[in-house]
Simulated assay, not measured.
Amino acid sequence: MNNVKNLNKWANAHTYLSVDLLRIALGVFLFIKGISFITNIQYLVELISPIDKIGGGMFLIHYIAPAHMIGGIMIVFGLLTRWAIIAQLPILIGAVIVNFMGEMHSENLIIALLTLGLCSFFLFYGSGKNSADYYFKLEK
């Protein structure tokens, strides 16, 4: 718990508007990706088909889109950012793995790696000063 508090203190002391805008852009991207998965469910089924042999395909379909949408909204507002990102990590790691197990789509791989990198950054950095997390901590 002390490590998280120390990370939050450091992040709040070194917060910049550009980092907050990057967090918001990441959240909007994840939300839009979730919407695109819901509107084109067949595309999502095709994407997870290489790992569907392992099992849990229906669970994945019902986890990926809502996790992207809800997590994206939470990341945009900076509300429980680290928890929202933790929910995204298995999806993004799976997106990287799917590219190597199935047909290689270099564009999807680059997007997945970039998003995974940004999520890893915000997992440690937190939501920053311009966020709901910071606002609610001031109210206590």
Rank of each mutant, 00 (worst) to 15 (best):
H105K: 04
I110K: 14
T39Q: 00
N8S: 13
D52T: 04
L26W: 03
H68P: 02
L79G: 06
S49N: 13
L123W: 13
L44I: 01
I61P: 06
F121I: 12
N8T: 13
V76P: 04
I24D: 09
I32M: 09
I73P: 05
L21V: 08
I70M: 05
F59W: 13
F59R: 07
L113F: 11
I61K: 14
M69A: 02
K9D: 14
I48R: 12
V76E: 05
K33L: 13
L92D: 00
F100P: 04
G94N: 07
F121T: 11
K5Q: 14
L109G: 06
S127G: 15
W10R: 05
F100M: 03
G126S: 13
S36G: 02
H62E: 07
H105D: 12
I97H: 02
G126R: 10
E103H: 13
L21F: 13
L80K: 14
N40A: 12
A112D: 00
D52P: 04
L123F: 15
I91S: 08
S18Y: 14
L118A: 13
I24K: 09
I73G: 11
C119S: 15
G102T: 00
I70C: 03
F77L: 14
L80P: 01
I111S: 04
T81D: 08
V76K: 05
V19S: 13
A95C: 03
I38C: 09
S106P: 03
Y63T: 01
T15C: 13
L79T: 08
G57D: 02
L7W: 10
S127V: 05
F37G: 02
Y125L: 06
N8G: 05
L7E: 11
I54Q: 03
G57Q: 06
W83D: 03
Y43W: 06
S106H: 07
I93S: 11
M69H: 01
K53G: 14
G102P: 01
I38V: 15
L44G: 10
F29C: 07
I75E: 08
I41V: 12
A95L: 04
A13P: 02
S49A: 15
N6I: 14
P90Y: 03
E46T: 01
V76M: 13
F59T: 10
F59M: 12
D20Q: 08
P66W: 03
F122G: 11
K33I: 10
L118H: 07
L60T: 00
W83E: 06
P50E: 00
I110D: 06
Y63D: 03
I54E: 02
G78Y: 06
D52Q: 14
L30C: 12
I35T: 02
L7S: 12
M101G: 05
V96G: 03
T115S: 04
I97V: 00
L118F: 13
A112R: 01
L109N: 07
H105S: 08
F100L: 04
M58S: 13
V4Q: 15
G27D: 07
N40K: 09
S120E: 07
L123H: 11
A13I: 03
I38L: 14
D20F: 04
G72W: 05
I93D: 08
L7Y: 09
V96I: 08
S49M: 08
V98Y: 05
I64K: 09
V76W: 03
